[in-house]
Computed example of a mutant assay.
Amino acid sequence: MTVLDRTATSSLVRRHTFTRAGVTIEVLDQGEGPAVFVLPSLGRGAEDYDAFAGLLADRGLRTLRPQPRGIGLSTGPLDGLTMHDLAGDVALAVESLGLAPAIIAGHAFGNFVARMLATIRPELVGGVAMLAGSAGMLPSGESPYDPEVLAALARCGDLSLGDETRLEALRIAFFAPGNDAGVWLGGWHPHVKAAQRVAEAATPVSVYFAGGEAPILEVQAARDTIAAPRFAHVLREQLGERVTTVVIPDAGHALIPEKPVAVADALAGWIVARTG
């Protein structure tokens, strides 16, 4: 099923739903040109990228945003998921739209789903873009998070807490100093976040670390406290020249609401260079 509406960017958005094996995935589809699927951060949905999708459409890209199951019109079991299941949901969207091989851009947690898809269904993926995405594996003895950041990360989407408490947690975990953390007070889906955490824990990072053999764009936020810049070398050291790294200044782990134009430029430039 396909319906039409408009986002705040005034760009026409086509909304599709596709169903297979008891799972329905809603996809927001905007623009024309080479296809890029944008996968959201942990416990968050496609609406985070309304403005960003417009920027990509303006740069000549067809931007597709699958809603994670449990958000919007996307439905399916949430118990006992693995990363295979989450990647399969994206595969359903890519296959149903006939857009393989497509660029899969994963924001934060979404980068794990993108790399999983490239691992299990390489024929569907023309490249993976990691937007503020952690490599997932660190050098021996390194700790990924400062304890304060880890505690703040848990508070951000805890809707039982007051706005001021959550706002301060967002500033610590997701946003660089001076950027507006208030834009992420809403948009959290705790039941989806919990299911995605289970899927992550059920699937060793080693399974999808390499992202198959796909080319990888690593868009690093210079002030990221989650996917810290000091670990940006990990993927390049392991995977070599198929990894391209771009650093966005004055941005934290939220990245896209902080510096949407810079991220759109980096992503579009990489895609256009690959597709001509």
Rank of each mutant, 00 (worst) to 15 (best):
G70A: 08
G72P: 00
G72L: 12
G72N: 03
L73C: 09
T75D: 03
T75N: 12
G76A: 05
L78T: 02
D79M: 13
L81W: 09
L81Y: 03
T82V: 13
T82S: 10
M83L: 14
H84Q: 10
D85I: 02
A87N: 03
G88H: 10
G88M: 07
E95V: 07
L97G: 08
G98Y: 01
G98E: 12
G98T: 05
L99Q: 15
A100L: 15
I103E: 04
I103A: 06
A105F: 04
A105N: 07
G106R: 02
A108M: 10
A108C: 12
F109Q: 02
F109V: 02
F109K: 00
G110K: 02
N111M: 01
F112W: 04
L117Q: 03
I120Q: 14
I120E: 07
R121F: 08
P122Q: 01
E123F: 00
V125E: 00
V125H: 01
G126W: 01
A129W: 06
A129D: 02
A129I: 03
M130C: 09
L131G: 03
A132S: 15
A132K: 02
A135E: 11
G136F: 00
M137S: 06
L138M: 11
P139C: 12
S140K: 02
S140H: 05
G141C: 05
G141Y: 13
P144G: 10
P144C: 05
D146F: 09
D146M: 04
D146L: 10
D146V: 14
P147Q: 03
V149W: 06
A152Y: 00
A152T: 03
L153T: 07
L153M: 12
A154D: 11
R155N: 13
C156V: 13
G157M: 09
D158K: 05
L159P: 15
L159I: 11
L159K: 04
S160E: 09
L161S: 01
L161Y: 09
G162V: 05
D163Y: 04
D163T: 01
D163F: 08
E168D: 08
E168R: 05
E168S: 15
A169V: 04
L170H: 07
R171V: 02
R171N: 13
A173P: 14
A173W: 06
F174N: 10
N179Q: 14
D180W: 05
D180Q: 08
D180K: 06
D180V: 06
G182F: 02
V183T: 14
L185Y: 14
L185V: 07
L185S: 10
G186Y: 02
G186R: 03
G187T: 01
H189R: 12
P190F: 07
H191T: 10
V192K: 03
V192A: 07
V192R: 00
A194K: 09
E200P: 00
E200Y: 13
A201Q: 15
A202G: 13
A202C: 09
